[in-house]
Design a protein around this nucleic acid. Structure first.
Ligand SMILES: NC(=O)c1ccc[n+]([C@@H]2O[C@H](COP(=O)([O-])OP(=O)(O)OC[C@H]3O[C@@H](n4cnc5c(N)ncnc54)[C@H](O)[C@@H]3O)[C@@H](O)[C@H]2O)c1
Ligand SMILES: NC(=O)c1ccc[n+]([C@@H]2O[C@H](COP(=O)([O-])OP(=O)(O)OC[C@H]3O[C@@H](n4cnc5c(N)ncnc54)[C@H](O)[C@@H]3O)[C@@H](O)[C@H]2O)c1
Lengths: 220, 220
DNA sequence: AATTTCTTGTGAAGCATTTCACATGAAAAA
DNA sequence: TTTTTCATGTGAAATGCTTCACAAGAAATT
C-alpha cells in the first residue's frame, strides 16, 4: 500500500483545517500515552464522523493498519509533513502594537514550527525596543532584512489604512505567505498566499446564532 | 415583494461569514459616497460571483431593485439586523494576559456593536488594574457580576489548562455565547454557542499552501 | 490453522453549496 | 408612451463535500 504521493486532487479548506485539528489531538494522545488511535476515537474527540477522518487522510495516502488503527506518532509525523510543519518557518511580525506584541509572546507558534525572528514597526518609540529577546527593526529596512534572514511568512498587524502598502512591500521582498489581521480586503499577486484573521466575524457569527436560534451543523 | 421573514432554511456558515464581509464592504461604500451597489460590484470587491451574493441575500428576503441594485444604507441596515448587530451586545473578557488585554483596546469591536464591559482575571497583580477605563474584576465574582450586568457573550483568553473550568463557570452564569482563543476542544451544553479562534491553524494553512503549491478556490 | 473480531480505505450515494440562465420588473432613454 | 437597458430573484444544473456501506486485510482468539 503506497503511503506517500504528491497531492493531485484539489484539497478543500475544510480538510486542511481538520488536518490541523488531528495534529493537535494526536499531540495530546501522545502525551496521554496512547500508541494507536482509531478513526472512531479521533472522530469522537473532534465531533466528526469516522468516515470523515478516514476520507481526509485518504487524499494523502494510507497510514493505518486494518483492525488496529493508526500509530499515533507515525500519523502525527505524516500530518506534520503534509501540513509542512516538519520544519521551521521563519516569520516576521509587521506592526508591533497591541495585537502584534501579544503574538510575539505566543509560544504555541514556535512549538508548531513558526519561529518569529524579526519584528518591524515605523514608530521611533518602538524601534530598538526589545520584545521577548527580539529587537524591533525599522520598517525602512524591511526588504533588506527579510531577504537576509530568508523570511517566508509575515504576520501583518498594522492599521488597516496602511495594510495594503505594507503588503506591497513584503511582496516586493519576496514573501510568499501573509497572515493579515487588519479588517480589509488586501490584494496580492497570484503566487502569494493570503489568509485573514477576522475576530469581528466570529463575534458576528455568535450574534447571528443567538438572534436566529441557529442550530448549525458545524460550529467548528 | 416581502422583505422580512424569519429564517426557515438552515443557513450555512459560509453564508453567515459572507454577510459579515458584505456588511464591512457596505460600510466602506457608504463612506465612499455610493448610494447604490449591484451584486456585480459587491462580488468584485469580495472576489465572489454576483450569483453568490444574490443567493446569500435571497435566504433572508429581497432587498434590491431590478435594474438598479441595492441601496447601500438600506442593505447595510438589513444585514445588520440579520447578523444581530443592530444592537449592543455586552461582552466580558476572561483572562487579561497578552491577548486578552490586546482585545480590550480593539475599537472595531465596539463599532460593530460588541461592547466590552467587564474584565476578569485570577491574578492578584491584575485584579484592580485599569484597562481602557475598565477595572479588572476578581474571577471569584464572575457569576455575580455577569448576571448583574446582563452579559451575554464571553471572550475567553485564559491558558488552555483552565479553559474548560472557566467555560463551565460562565455557562453556569447563564452566558450563551463564547469566543475561545485557547487551543483546546471545549465542551458546552447544546444551547450555548461556541466559536474557536485558532491562529496556528491559519499559519498551518499557509504552510500547507506553500508546500503543496496549493491553488485554492477560496482563500477567504 | 482456522475463525472471529476489528478497523481501514474507498467507490458510490446522499446532501449541500455554488453557479447558471432566464423570466421578471424597474429605471432610463427615446 | 414606448422601447431599451439593466440587474434582481430564483428554479434548475453543476459542482463539491460528507456519509454510507462493505470488501479487504491485519490482529487476536480459539
Ligand atoms: N487589537 C486587537 O485586538 C485587534 C484584533 C483584531 C484585529 N486587529 C487589527 O490589527 C491591526 C493592529 O491592531 P492594534 O490594536 O495592534 O493596533 P496598534 O495601533 O496598537 O498597532 C499597530 C502598530 O503598527 C505600527 N505601524 C503603523 N504604521 C506602520 C507602518 N507603515 N509600518 C510598520 N508599522 C506600522 C504602529 O506603530 C503600531 O505599533 C489593526 O489593523 C487592527 O484592526 C486588532
Ligand atoms: N498570546 C497570543 O498571541 C495568543 C494567540 C492565540 C491564542 N492564544 C491563547 O490565548 C490564551 C491566553 O494567551 P496569553 O498569551 O494571553 O496568555 P497569558 O498567560 O498572557 O494570559 C492568560 C491570563 O489568564 C489569567 N488566568 C489564568 N487562570 C485564570 C483563571 N482561572 N481565571 C481567570 N483568569 C485566569 C492569567 O492571570 C493571565 O492574565 C491561551 O490559551 C493561548 O493559548 C494566545
Amino acid at each position: 500500500m503506497s503511503s506517500e504521493q504528491p497531492v493531485k486532487k484539489r484539497i478543500s479548506e475544510s480538510t486542511i483545517h481538520r488536518l490541523s485539528m488531528y495534529f493537535r489531538t494526536l499531540s495530546l494522545l501522545q502525551k496521554e500515552g496512547y500508541e494507536t488511535v482509531s478513526s472512531k476515537e479521533l472522530a469522537r474527540r473532534e465531533k466528526l464522523t469516522p468516515a470523515q477522518v478516514r476520507k481526509d487522510l485518504s487524499f494523502f495516502g494510507s497510514f493505518g493498519t486494518r483492525g488496529l488503527g493508526y500509530d499515533v506518532i507515525e500519523l502525527k509525523a505524516k500530518i506534520g509533513e503534509i501540513l509542512g510543519i516538519d520544519r521551521v518557518w521563519k516569520v516576521a511580525v509587521v506592526g508591533i502594537g497591541n495585537i502584534g506584541s501579544a503574538l510575539v509572546s505566543y509560544k504555541e507558534f514556535t512549538r508548531q514550527g513558526f519561529k518569529i525572528v524579526k519584528l518591524f514597526d515605523n514608530d521611533q518609540r518602538k524601534i530598538g525596543s526589545n520584545h521577548k529577546g527580539i529587537v524591533v527593526s525599522d520598517i525602512k529596512n524591511l526588504e533588506k532584512e527579510i531577504k537576509e534572514d530568508g523570511i517566508e511568512m509575515i504576520i501583518l498587524t498594522v492599521p488597516a489604512t496602511v495594510a495594503q502598502y505594507m503588503v506591497d512591500d513584503v511582496v516586493r521582498a519576496g514573501v510568499k505567505a501573509i497572515l493579515n489581521f487588519a479588517p480589509i480586503n488586501l490584494k496580492v499577486p497570484p503566487d502569494v498566499y493570503l489568509r485573514n484573521e477576522n475576530m469581528s466575524m466570529e463575534l458576528e457569527y455568535l450574534s447571528f446564532a443567538i438572534r436566529n436560534n441557529h442550530t448549525p451543523k458545524n460550529m467548528k
